[in-house]
Nucleic acid binder design. Sequence first.
DNA 1: GCAAAAGTGTTTTGTCTACACCCATGA
DNA 2: TCATGGGTGTAGACAAAACACTTTTGC
Lengths: 229, 229
Amino acid sequence: MPTALYSQQDRLLVAVDCIIFGFTGNELKALLVKRLFEPESGKWSLMGGFVKENESVEAAATRVLGQLTGLTDIYMEQLFCFGDVQRDPGGRVISVAFFALIKIDDYSEELMAEHYAGWFPLNKIPALVFDHKNMIKLAKQRLKEKAATHPIGFALLPRKFTLQQLQGLYEAIYETSLDKRNFIRKIHSLNILRKLDEKDKESSRKGAFYYVFDRDKYNQLDKEAIQFL
Amino acid sequence: MPTALYSQQDRLLVAVDCIIFGFTGNELKALLVKRLFEPESGKWSLMGGFVKENESVEAAATRVLGQLTGLTDIYMEQLFCFGDVQRDPGGRVISVAFFALIKIDDYSEELMAEHYAGWFPLNKIPALVFDHKNMIKLAKQRLKEKAATHPIGFALLPRKFTLQQLQGLYEAIYETSLDKRNFIRKIHSLNILRKLDEKDKESSRKGAFYYVFDRDKYNQLDKEAIQFL
DNA sequence: GCAAAAGTGTTTTGTCTACACCCATGA
DNA sequence: TCATGGGTGTAGACAAAACACTTTTGC
């Protein structure tokens, strides 16, 4: 019985918390839920849960994301382990934070109501339980770093999107405005988009061509070092 | 008694493991120890320990580093939480890995013997217990990323060093060779070094001037975005 | 005087930035 | 025909990369 080897050691509660980002076309938002149990019941919170004995930490995060969104195959990345002794007044809990990117339209109104969830613009995050605000801050920073060198922005956009949507996304992530021509030149030079014949006629009379992210083309690149911005 | 709130949840063993890097003048090395307890007693391992109930995860890492090196005030950074169910055959243990940089000369032979420790070049790491090899791999990668934008290399060099030592360090980190003139120009343009009057006469007849890292000058810069390479 | 490492500039190349007008279409 | 967003090119600034010879000094 191998566990006996470590029987003298303290055991801790281990949680996961998920920072879920979505993009509306104008701004980046985070998905928050009302906490329905003590302590701090009734306050806004990240979606989280405890890691079980027979479950890996990543599996716990996937499970929690699935519970809230009904989605599988979500872009998800481990962010940081928050391990302060006093971070949760309900007990000694260490929490591994994950950040996830979803296509905001995939998230149904029903699920939202069911979980008492809401989307909040990143600069209008309400008071949150524990250290969750720090988690969001760190996630935002990590998103910037990551999006600069890896094509993760596509996880936030619909399957087909216009170049202006893509640019708007990067502008939201970097909280800046970009020159249209320079941006498009840069993206095209990476050669990871495929232009469709179809146009989006929603937002202009002329219509803007849709593009899709071409995973095959991307996979041919050296995955570690493409430079978006 | 607030802990009762979460009493239904599983509790896990939580460990920390430290990847300790040092630099000899030619190559980057990692400090490993012989594991003296079961399971896998006798194999090489990272230095680690369990997180206690009343200790933060970072504090546990600092404690473990202090035990092995006798040093305080070590550069240390959280790397990643390894949470697979089967990663440790001795039980369900999740491990938060940290990477640390030390000046290799600060680490005494006596401590080394006492802990059955040894320095290993990064491309000659022996078989290690559990997932420790993955931890080193990830740490190496993180060191590259971090050193490109933050002046952490100084934590690996003696207080005073020559420009060739500094260049040698970056060459070791990036596993490449750099042009001497371009490198020096770049470093000088960052304006974070102070030249001493003293010369190192060990490695040449002419002698090379010593420099020190000037933390004051560095602190005046925008800490998030300097570009080394 | 010679071997061995230290120190020092210039040119070329490529990348990033700033900038403004015509196009296509539906109403 | 006009209002709206879509689409396109060029010139200048700046940073990165390539490249070789002279200096110092202990032996």
